[in-house]
């Protein structure tokens, strides 16, 4: 890649002003580091992955509002965690975490378990019990 070919597509929304370092060949044929303001192709592919996460999260949010899942499911997904990661972080067995992802299981949680979840997810207890309305 030549220095002039380093993508400068200024994908502001994606990079938020962060520049990434690219290795490219300058006029004398020497490798130098060139800061790139983003590449459209890369942004497109990344956006797809981000949108997929957002769509799944939205589905979970609706399921919580409809009473099919517990708010814990939503907050776990918002932190891009799986029951395995959340279980380890909170120090709770995975099968129990899975139980708490259902509304019935979540309703029975005592304060000490709730606190472990709020710590693991870095949110407040009030946040943990609800999901955004819209």
């Amino acid at each position: 890649m030549k220095v002039k070919d380093v993508p400068q597509d200024n994908t502001v929304e994606y990079y938020e002003g962060v520049k990434r370092a690219c290795y490219a060949v300058n006029e004398e044929g020497k490798y130098v580091i060139v800061p790139s303001s983003g590449w459209r192709e890369e942004e497109l592919i990344n956006r797809l992955a981000v949108e997929e996460l957002a769509a799944n999260l939205e589905k979970t949010r609706k399921a919580v509002l409809a009473g099919r899942k517990s708010p814990l499911a939503y907050h776990m997904e918002r932190r891009q965690m799986t029951p395995q990661i959340l279980g380890k972080t909170a120090g709770i067995a995975v099968f129990r975490v899975k139980r708490h992802l259902r509304p019935e299981g979540f309703a029975k949680l005592n304060d000490s378990l709730l606190e472990r979840y709020t710590k693991a997810l870095a949110i407040t207890a009030a946040e943990l019990k609800t999901v955004p309305r819209d």
Partner: peptide, 12 residues
């Protein structure tokens, strides 16, 4: 492609 071009690879 993400793993290939994601920030931190220097490209390609």
């Amino acid at each position: 492609v993400r793993m290939q071009e994601e920030v931190g690879t220097g490209g390609a």
